[in-house]
């Protein structure tokens, strides 16, 4: 792919080619579309709040402890993912892989606690079929959880590419884009934490 652009030492590797810059811009546009997707799920959730069909309500089932564990795991994974990109920009392939590895472990930990929480709700009689409220709850949180699962698979594949090819304009661009995706999942979680859990416990 012998591009002839010269390397500009003031820019990180992932911004060196025009194609990379446009790929990254394109990913931001994709994230804009994801914002619209999650907005529709949040709107549905808020409109259906209180539609319990005589089933259990969120105030009875939500527990702040488990929710805070999930929140801090995801927040920390966003931080380790940021450090991974910092290490990548220092030219440290090993640093990138270690911090991405930590991010992956935290992502798996988050999924473990989230699935545990869902199983608990189902045992308490709140399933996706119980009421309009729980349908919208599981759709919103399930879509976020599915994004996290996809992100884990994606990050593993990027790690394999970095391990095999090292840091070049292509692999750094790919690593940077998965980092944007991962931070975005944390942004969505902030709104789930606030709009679903905190408000569910207040109302």
């Amino acid at each position: 792919m012998g591009h002839t652009e010269t390397i500009d030492p003031n820019k990180p590797l992932e911004y060196q080619t025009e194609k990379s810059r446009l790929n990254i811009l394109g990913f931001w546009i994709f994230l804009g579309a994801e914002v619209a997707l999650f907005a529709t799920l949040f709107a549905t959730y808020f409109v259906l709040t209180g539609r319990l069909a005589d089933g259990p309500g969120p105030g009875e089932l939500f527990e702040i402890k488990g929710v805070l564990i999930e929140t801090f795991i995801l927040l920390t994974s966003s931080f380790t993912c940021g450090i991974a990109i910092h290490e990548m920009r220092r030219g440290s392939k090993k640093g990138l892989m270690i911090w991405f590895g930590l991010t992956l472990l935290l992502g798996l930990g988050f999924l473990y606690f989230e699935i545990e929480e869902f199983i608990h709700y189902v045992h308490e009689g709140a399933t996706i079929q119980t009421s309009a409220y729980w349908s919208s709850f599981f759709t919103l949180l399930g879509t976020h959880g599915a994004h996290v699962s996809l992100g884990i698979g994606w990050m593993i594949m990027i790690l394999i590419q970095v391990a095999r090819h090292g840091l070049n304009t292509t692999t750094t661009r790919k690593a940077f884009i998965i980092s944007l995706y991962w931070h975005f999942l944390d942004v969505v979680w902030i709104f789930i934490f606030t709009g679903v859990y905190l408000m569910g416990m207040v109302m």
């Binding site: 990180p12 911004y15 810059r21 446009l22 990254i24 811009l25 931001w28 546009i29 994230l31 804009g32 579309a33 914002v35 619209a36 999650f38 907005a39 949040f42 966003s78 931080f79 993912c81 940021g82 980092s179 944007l180 931070h183 975005f184």
Partner: peptide, 23 residues
């Protein structure tokens, strides 16, 4: 964390502000 101002910063910010408005 996401360095939104880097690269095509203006277009990136514009996209996110617009999507926030839509949301």
């Amino acid at each position: 964390f996401m360095h939104i101002g880097e690269g095509e910063g203006k277009a990136q910010k514009g996209t996110i502000y617009f999507s926030a408005f839509i949301a």
